[in-house]
Every structure is written in C-alpha cells, then in structure tokens.
C-alpha cells in the first residue's frame, strides 16, 4: 500500500487491493480532488473507468466509514513514470447516480464515461457530451443494470426436413 499524495483531500479511506498498489474510497465530494492529487503525483494515464451495479450483491468489503451505495464508479489510474497502479472507487448513489466527470483531468475518460452513462445511467457532471455511445439513441433503459433483463429470447427448435 502506497501513501496518498500530499495534496489529497483529508479523510479518504484506503485499503489494499489485488494486483494494485492501493484502492481509495473517496466520497463523491472528494472524488475529483483525489483524482487530481493522484494525477499531480505522476499518474499520467487513466486506464479504465467503469460502473458497477451492486444491486443484489451479498456484501462487499469496504473500509470503515464508507457508505455503500448501489452504484459505484471504478477508476484505474496508471503511472508510467513510477510503474504503479491505483484504483479509485467512488460510491455514486442509489436512485440517480451522479459523480463529477474526469474529462478536465483526463480527456481520455470521455468515451468511458459515456459508456458508463449508456450502460448504467450514471450521470457525469461537467461531461461535454453525455449521450449514448453503444446503444441506439432511442433505446430505453440501461442494459448493464442488474434489474435489466439479459433479454434472452427463448430458443425454438423447429422441425426441418432432414436428408433422411
């Protein structure tokens, strides 16, 4: 576990994580400042940003003081200069999940945030163009939510004349 950067906002919970140097759990208010602090600490690449819908999960391990919400946004940062990885997990809310966009810090998160919006309905404040990216524009619902059905169509095996 590596220490938080000096410019990080106070009171951010941290924990060990698999295949990663540290996982941080900021509140949604401290989220942007924390990511900025990491960026200034030398994390040049925001490698991944995705949403998770924890509806129906039996219980995830969170550090003390972190209030679990249904939606979570997971950001993986990578430092090319010091070869480190950091994960930021922010609780986004239950009903209307909403966090701040990272577009100003990492322009590369633009498409990833649009994807999280498209598939989970997580809103990103300050995002330049929050439209659907993978689904058609007139699609209803957010497919990767846990209360959205897989959309399986029952398979019908029809009788077809065979060679015999």
């Amino acid at each position: 576990m590596i220490p938080l950067p000096p410019t990080a906002p106070p009171g951010v919970a941290c924990a060990d994580a698999l295949a990663c140097d540290v996982a941080c759990f900021p509140t949604s208010g401290a989220y942007l400042d924390l990511v900025r602090a990491w960026r200034d600490d030398g994390f040049e690449i925001c490698v991944d940003l995705c949403g998770v819908d924890y509806l129906g999960h039996p219980g995830r391990v969170l550090p003390e003081g972190v209030v679990a919400t249904r939606f979570e946004v997971v950001v993986n940062l990578l430092s090319v200069s010091s070869r480190r990885r950091v994960r930021v997990r922010v609780q986004a809310g239950d009903r209307e999940p909403r966090v701040h966009s990272l577009f100003d810090l990492y322009p590369g998160t633009e498409a990833m945030e649009r994807e999280a919006f498209d598939l989970f309905g997580i809103l990103f404040d300050g995002h330049p163009d929050l439209t659907r990216i993978l689904m058609p524009e007139d699609w209803e619902g957010h497919p990767l939510r846990k209360d959205y059905a897989v959309g399986r169509v029952p398979v019908q095996f029809k009788e077809a004349p065979g060679p015999r």
Binding site: M135, P143, Y148, A149, V150, G151, R152, V153, V155
Partner: peptide, 13 residues
C-alpha cells in the same frame, strides 16, 4: 444465423 451464443438484448437473433 441465429444470434449464436449471444442471446441477449444487443444482438438481433
């Protein structure tokens, strides 16, 4: 031909 292994919301079956 039939949607294959992707029997889900996104693929035309």
């Amino acid at each position: 031909s039939s949607g294959g292994m992707f029997n889900n919301y996104a693929i035309v079956q």
